[in-house]
């Protein structure tokens, strides 16, 4: 088991390095830097001014060196060209003695040009907000999806199956920006007539989560993911129900309820479990859409702000978090698969 874990973690680290490098590369393209120089300096800078600004701030070093500095494995401190000053860690507190290594690994995530604050702190707060949203989404989505999938797959081809399957197909065909719009029109506008919920979730951050301000965003997000998981569960369940060992159990005289609960369920849940865990890179898209649509200032909203305003450090920070979450869920998915499936249980 330990070798397996070590190998997986090793692969994870390698993946993380590759992904962050790609993000670093894409956020530090020359035009981006030029834009940064102009927004930090002045809009009317000449090309030569831009060049010298970049030099002064250490942006003219080779890409790999800068990546190493950002990561925190290459010393950040170095003399600025053409002057006596040194380029130091921009993320350090004003009074603090700048450390030699000043990268993500040491906890220095950089400085946001939009929020004029340290990236680490900003992301932390927003993640907490998004965590609350995700929690409720999971609470609604996973049990519903599994229930629908199991009920539909239990008796393949039945009327229940047909209607539940159609419902799950319909939800997968409705992206968040469609269902969100529909929900707001129906449940939160004067036109729909039903003013049951609020069309925005902004108040949830300040005055706490309520049924009124959170129902629509949670439902919007849960609905899209639910259909997919439900279809997976249904397919898996339907396959298991035609397996010979289910017939064995039935012809042993096991009650139908027990056939489903004791014999089929565990085998049927192996596939959906992996799917749920691998949904995370995908759920992030939903987070961004829903937070934009419902004006909920969480991680997704932050990502939009960072990307829209060329806030390089913040965007990098967001990417690290996103990549980390994705990789951890993949690891959990692998371990869970081994746990659920005794056939590949590591002895």
């Amino acid at each position: 088991m330990t070798t397996f874990l070590l190998r997986r973690v090793g692969g994870m680290v390698l993946t993380a390095l590759c992904l962050t490098f790609v993000v670093f590369f894409l956020t530090n393209l020359d035009p981006n830097l030029e834009k940064l120089a102009k927004s930090e300096g002045s809009v009317r800078m000449s090309d030569a001014d831009v060049e010298s600004w970049l030099d002064k701030n250490g942006f003219s070093q080779p890409l790999l060196v800068r990546y190493g500095q950002w990561l925190g494995v290459v010393p950040y401190k170095h003399p600025a060209p053409d002057s006596d000053a040194t380029v130091t860690c921009r993320a350090a507190e004003p009074g603090e003695e700048p450390p030699t290594f000043c990268g993500v690994l040491e906890g220095y995530w950089g400085y946001s040009t939009v929020f004029k604050d340290r990236v680490g702190g900003i992301i932390g707060g927003k993640i907490a907000a998004t965590g609350v949203l995700m929690f409720w989404v999971m609470v609604v989505m996973v049990p519903m999806a599994l229930l629908i999938g199991v009920l539909a797959g239990m008796r393949e081809g039945s009327r229940t199956d047909r209607s539940l399957s159609t419902f799950s197909i319909a939800t997968t065909a409705t992206p968040e920006y469609v269902s969100g719009v529909l929900f707001i029109v129906i449940f939160a506008s004067s036109v729909g007539g039903l003013r049951w919920f609020k069309g925005t979730a902004t108040s949830a951050i300040d005055s706490g989560v309520t049924f009124e301000n959170f129902t629509l965003p949670v439902l919007t997000m849960a609905l899209y993911g639910m259909g997919y998981i439900a279809r997976m569960t249904r397919a898996s369940m339907a396959e298991v129900m035609t397996a010979q060992y289910i017939r064995t159990a039935r012809l042993k005289g096991v009650r139908f309820r027990d056939v489903v609960l004791k014999h089929a369920l565990r085998n049927a849940l192996i596939a959906p479990f992996t799917v749920i865990m691998l949904q995370f890179p995908w759920l992030l898209t939903g987070v961004v859409i829903v937070e934009t649509l419902f004006n909920y200032k969480g991680f997704g909203w932050l990502l939009v702000q960072a990307a829209g305003n060329n806030d390089i450090d913040l965007l990098l920070g967001c990417s690290v978090v996103a990549v980390f979450v994705v990789l951890v869920t993949q690891l959990i998915s692998d371990i869970g698969y081994v746990y659920l499936n005794p056939r590949i249980r590591v002895r």
Partner: peptide, 24 residues
């Protein structure tokens, strides 16, 4: 029927691997 299945009439199948629950 459920009561006689397994107690009065029992069945043995072709593929032993497939007829045993792999997760039990």
């Amino acid at each position: 029927l459920r009561q006689i299945r397994g107690s009065e009439i029992a069945m043995i199948y072709q593929e032993p691997m497939a007829s045993l629950n792999p997760a039990m």
